[in-house]
Each structure stands twice: as C-alpha cells, then as structure tokens.
C-alpha cells in the first residue's frame, strides 16, 4: 500500500468513524449514568430520516440537523420513561425502539415522498459540505504531514469536527465538572447520590437526553454528510458497533475516539477490495468484506479487552429505599 492509498483510506476512516464516535459518546453518557442503551441504532435511524426529510423539504441542512436531533430526542425520552420512570428492562426497551424506528422511518419517508421509503437525494446547501481547514494547501508541501493534513484532517463536513471536538468536551464534562462527577457516581452507586440530596431521576434523564442529542447529530451526519439522503436501515448496525466500541473503550472518552477510529478503519478497509487484495494477495469475496467490520467487532469484544467492567449500577432501575 503506498502513502497516497493509505491517505485515501484514512480519509474515509475519518468519515466512517464520525457517526460511530458520536453514537459511542452518546452511549457513554447514558451508560455512565446507569442506563443501558441498545437503542443508539434506532435513534440514529430516526434522526437520519428526520434530517433527510427536512433538509430535502427546506433545502437547509442546519434545519435538517435540528429536526434530526428532535427526532432522536423523542426516542430518547421514550427510553427514559420506560427505563427510569417505569423501571422497565432497559435492553428490551432499546431493542423495541430500534424496531419501531426501523419501521416508522420507512412509513414516514414513504408517506412524505412516495419514493419507496427513501428521502429524495440531497445536494448543495441541503448537505454538509466539505470545510477546507486553514493552510491546507499551503502546508501540503511538507513531506508526510502536509498531505496528511490536507487529505485526512481537512475537507470534511462540519459534523466531523463537531464529533472530534465532542471528545475533549466529554472528557472535561465527565472529569472536571460537578455534573460529570455526579453522573459517574449515579452509574456506580445511585443510592449514594440520592443520599447526597441529588435527584437520581433528573440526572439520568439529563444523561439520556444528551444521548439523544448526540445520536441526533450522528444520524444527521449519516443522512446529510456521509450519504445524500435517508434510505431504509441505512445505519446498518452502526449503533451496535458503537456499543462494542464503548465497551472496548471501557466507557472513557479518549479511548472511545481510538476505538471508533479503529472500527472506522475496518469499515474503510472493507470498501477497498483492491487494497486488501494487494496487501494480502488473496481475492476476498465482497460479502466477506461486508461482514468484515462485524467480524472484527466480535474479535475485538472477545479478544482484546479481557473483562470490561461496566458501570456497576448499569441496567438496574433505581428504587428509592423507604
């Protein structure tokens, strides 16, 4: 593999890792607060449909983004009601909402546009267009780093940078603010937080809403950044891969960035059968490449992490002691 090819693959790694990273951080907030969320997939899908539809109707991607966030938030609230207020099974709630999202997005897109459950193709201001980072051209003369800056870091849609920025912000929120301290505490030992006079319910709802917000951005990027419009089941398991990345990252923000970049790299590699053939000398069938990110996800979950310890109170509804 020569350097130019590598840069191409890394460039698509950045784009493919973005929805994973946003979803992974989304899951991080929820799970750190003690609420498991299998429903990242559904929230992303709902957001992708809302963004695709509204951006197509208004021609403005930013209004589309807001619609996407709103759509994702609706699902987040339902998950919150089921798992916080009514203390239901969080895994089942997530799975259920994924099915609802999978069906209702097609229903809505079909009734709005009558194009077989898709939204119309987006273009121009209805998409997130590439942003040229400063000095990308000027610095491209510097060996190795110059082209890397121009090809890989520069030239992505705005949400890619939002996602990258969300990593230090999440780190700061989690480890440097009072909210973050409480969030981490409520996922480990909700009773102690309750004893300190802080509302467990409110903290968890806040976390679940942040999850909704970030999944909304992830879905918006899917529909108006990575691709040009919404299509049935377009998230293709990314919500679950993000969860696997979250476990791999042991629920920490910087590790989440690395984990999602790794999974993004797998996905980018799967898109380049020519490169794989050149590197290992075997003609890998296309379906095998399609399966590659999923296989590698299982390998990562099984092999590298040993036992990842989730937040202790994760999945357990909090019942106030009388």
């Amino acid at each position: 593999m020569d350097y130019a090819t590598l840069l191409q693959i890394l460039d698509s790694t950045m784009r493919l890792a973005t929805p994973l990273l946003l979803a992974c951080l989304a899951g991080l907030y929820s799970e750190r607060s003690g609420i498991f969320d299998i429903g990242l997939e559904g929230k992303m899908l709902a957001a992708a449909m809302c963004t695709g539809a509204v951006a197509a109707l208004t021609g403005n991607v930013w209004i589309g983004l807001l619609a996407g966030i709103a759509g994702s938030m609706v699902f987040a609230v339902i998950h919150g009601v089921a798992s916080i207020t009514f203390r239901g099974n969080q895994l089942i709630s997530g799975v259920a909402l994924n099915f609802v999202a999978s069906g209702i997005t097609v229903l809505a897109a079909q009734s709005l546009f009558k194009q077989g459950g898709r939204t119309p193709p987006l273009s121009g201001t209805a998409r997130f267009n590439p942003i040229e980072l400063p000095f990308a051209e000027a610095l491209s003369g510097i060996p190795i780093l110059g082209p890397f800056y121009r090809e890989v870091l520069s030239g992505h849609g705005a949400l890619v940078y939002v996602a990258l920025l969300a990593v230090p912000v999440t780190w700061w929120v989690l480890y440097r603010t009072r909210f973050g301290l409480r969030l981490r505490a409520v996922g480990e030992n909700p009773a102690s937080v309750d004893t300190a006079g802080i509302s467990v319910v409110r903290l968890r709802y806040t976390a679940v809403m942040i999850t909704g917000l970030l999944c909304g951005i992830a879905g918006a990027y899917m529909a108006a950044g990575l691709q040009a419009g919404f299509g049935k089941e377009m998230t293709a398991g990314r919500g679950y891969i993000a969860l696997a990345a979250l476990i791999f990252a042991k629920w920490r923000p910087w590790y989440a960035l690395m984990a999602t970049l790794l999974f993004g790299f797998f996905q980018a590699l799967a898109l380049r059968p020519d490169v794989i053939k050149k590197s290992i000398g075997i003609d890998v069938p296309v379906p095998m490449l399609d399966a590659l990110p999923y296989i590698l996800t299982v390998v990562v979950l099984a092999g590298f992490i040993g036992r990842a310890i989730p937040p202790r109170a994760g999945g357990e509804p909090y019942v106030k002691e009388r």
Partner: peptide, 19 residues
C-alpha cells in the same frame, strides 16, 4: 407500507417487555 408490521412488533415488545 409493509413496514407497519415492524412498528407494531416494536410497540408490542416495548409495552410487554419494557413498559
């Protein structure tokens, strides 16, 4: 659309399993 089935399926899981 036939996807209505998926919606009902999801709702049944939601109400019987989580709510």
């Amino acid at each position: 659309p036939i996807e209505l089935r998926t919606v009902v399926q999801g709702l049944v899981i939601l109400f019987t399993g989580a709510l």
